[in-house]
């Protein structure tokens, strides 16, 4: 485990970006911080700016207006960072994928998908734990540290 990965996987500071979500994933993320699940005891906190964050949580599809903002945001993200997609929306687009206001899933390196509509807070916690474990074992490398050509786009298949 390199020094970078060691530092990245401790006390995650999370920035949450809701695209054109239905709000439910967002609320389950907040839920994971409130007394019943209380992720803050592990040092996982939400921060108000991507510049302070280790992890970018995405939820919802990204429509034309939101995609522009997402791209601007990724430019500002300090490396190394993880991108975790919460819910079925960022993974497949769910039933919104045919919408006129939605092009393709934004081509950004996503390190982990936590599926569910919405995933339960338990699932979110377990997903984050799995990613951290895999990073520490060296099973995966954060997408932002990979060479661009060695970085296959997630481009999920249509689920109908």
């Amino acid at each position: 485990m390199t020094y970078t990965i060691d530092a990245l996987t401790k006390s995650l500071n999370v920035f949450h970006l809701a695209g054109s979500a239905c709000n439910n994933c967002d609320i389950e993320i907040l839920d994971a911080l409130t007394p019943k699940y209380d992720l803050e005891r592990f040092g996982i906190t939400l921060v108000g700016s991507i510049r302070h964050a280790d992890v970018l949580l995405l939820s919802g599809i990204f429509n034309r207006k939101a995609t522009v903002r997402l791209k601007e945001l990724l430019v500002q993200a300090p490396k190394p960072y993880l991108v975790i997609a919460i819910g079925g929306c960022p993974a497949t687009g769910l039933m919104f994928r045919d919408s006129y206001n939605f092009e393709a899933p934004p081509s950004i390196p996503i390190d982990a998908f936590i599926p569910g509509c919405p995933p339960k807070p338990e699932a979110i916690i377990s997903g984050v734990v799995t990613v951290i474990g895999a990073l520490r074992e060296g099973a995966i490398v954060p997408g932002c540290l990979q060479e661009p050509e060695a970085n296959p786009q997630p481009a999920p298949e249509a689920v109908t």
């Binding site: 695209g19 709000n23 439910n24 919802g60 599809i61 429509n63 939101a66 919408s99 939605f102 919405p118």
Partner: peptide, 29 residues
């Protein structure tokens, strides 16, 4: 506009039972 998913239009391509699942995902609350 950051959240506009075009649900009214999408609904026209779903049958009446599917529409219910679509409108459920308008808002999680």
């Amino acid at each position: 506009g950051y959240n506009h998913r075009g649900i009214e239009k999408l609904s026209e391509s779903k049958d009446f039972e599917e529409t219910v699942f679509l409108v459920e995902r308008i808002c999680g609350i």
